[in-house]
């Protein structure tokens, strides 16, 4: 199927926006940068083919990367458990604070924010990207990223507050 010029532009824009997040997520699962790069390429090749039909690009990319990583592990060990690989929030009992973990995870997922802010959150909060590196990905200055991220954290803390977590220092 021939792709319209406009959709190639849109794909390029989406690629530039999500590449770092997808690569980082895969890298934290496979642990090897070269393997992660190949798998990331695989995800985006499928993304290119199905681009016009995808509505929620971020959700689709995360779903596909999960399948691609699963296939990668299944090649080595056919009996691998995907949930174990992805350490799912709802299934994992970490430090005995499962509920708190779910609440924080919900706060990260459900906080109302734009695509750029979501990317910022993924890169800085989840993958510990420096402000400078995140700025390069997002097309913002380091200062802008620092300020916007501060505002975002403030909103997340307000959400946690509404869920009964008055001071996060208590949870540490």
């Amino acid at each position: 199927m021939k792709k319209a010029k406009g959709s190639v532009d849109e794909f390029t824009q989406a690629y530039m926006e999500y590449y770092s997040q997808v690569f980082s997520s895969i890298l934290t699962k496979v642990g090897n940068a070269e393997d992660a790069r190949d798998l990331c390429q695989e995800v985006f090749l499928i993304f290119f083919d199905k681009f016009e039909k995808i509505e929620n690009k971020r959700a689709w990319l995360y779903g596909t990367l999960r399948n691609v990583v699963y296939r990668h592990y299944a090649k080595k060990d056919p009996g691998v458990d995907i949930d174990e690989v992805f350490n799912d929030v709802g299934l994992t009992f970490t430090n005995g604070f499962r509920d708190t973990r779910i609440i924080i995870s919900e706060a990260l997922e459900q906080i109302e924010c734009g695509e750029d802010e979501r990317t910022m959150l993924d890169l800085i909060a989840t993958h510990n990207f420096t402000y400078g590196n995140a700025a390069g990905v997002l097309g913002l200055t380091r200062r802008q990223v620092e300020y916007k991220y501060g505002q975002l954290v403030k909103r997340i803390l307000e959400y946690l507050n509404s869920k009964g977590i008055k001071d996060i220092a208590e949870l540490l």
Binding site: T94, S105, H127, N128
Partner: peptide, 8 residues
């Protein structure tokens, strides 16, 4: 602490 970050 709650293992929600996966640092790179």
């Amino acid at each position: 602490r709650y293992k929600l970050s996966r640092p790179v």
